[in-house]
Computed example of a mutant assay.
Amino acid sequence: MVGIAGVCIVFAMVFGGYIIAGGKLEIILHALPHEMIIIAGAAIGAFVISSDFHTIKHTLSDIAKVFKGPKWKPRDYQDLLCLMFQLIKARANPVELDSHIEDPASSPIFMAYPRILADAEAVSLICDTLRSASMNYDDPHQVEEVLTKRIEKTYAKAQHSSHALQTMADALPALGIVAAVLGVIKTMASIDQPPPVLGKMIAGALVGTFMGVFLAYGIVGPFASRVKAVIDEDQTFYNLIREVMVAALHNHAANVCVEVGRQNTPAAVRPSYGDLEGALRATRQAA
Rank of each mutant, 00 (worst) to 15 (best):
M1V: 11
I4W: 11
G6N: 10
I9P: 02
F11G: 06
Y18D: 04
I20D: 10
I20F: 13
K24E: 13
A43Q: 03
I44L: 14
G45I: 01
V48H: 03
I49Y: 13
T59F: 11
S61M: 09
K65I: 00
K65Q: 13
K65N: 14
G69Q: 02
P70Q: 03
W72L: 01
D79W: 05
C82A: 15
M84Q: 14
Q86G: 12
L87D: 09
P94R: 05
V95H: 09
S107W: 07
P108M: 03
P108R: 07
P108F: 10
A120H: 15
A122N: 09
V123C: 02
C127K: 00
A133P: 05
M135P: 05
N136M: 15
N136C: 12
D138E: 07
P140E: 08
K149N: 04
E152C: 10
S161T: 02
L165R: 03
Q166C: 05
M168Y: 08
G176F: 04
L182M: 15
G183E: 03
T187I: 07
M188T: 12
P194E: 13
P194T: 07
P196C: 09
P196E: 02
V197R: 11
K200L: 03
M201G: 11
M201R: 11
I202T: 03
F214I: 00
F214Y: 05
I219D: 10
F223W: 15
I231F: 07
E233S: 14
E233I: 00
F237M: 01
V244F: 05
M245C: 07
G261W: 04
V269Q: 08
V269I: 08
P271Y: 06
S272V: 01
D275M: 12
E277R: 14
G278L: 05
G278R: 10
A279N: 02
R284T: 09
R284W: 09
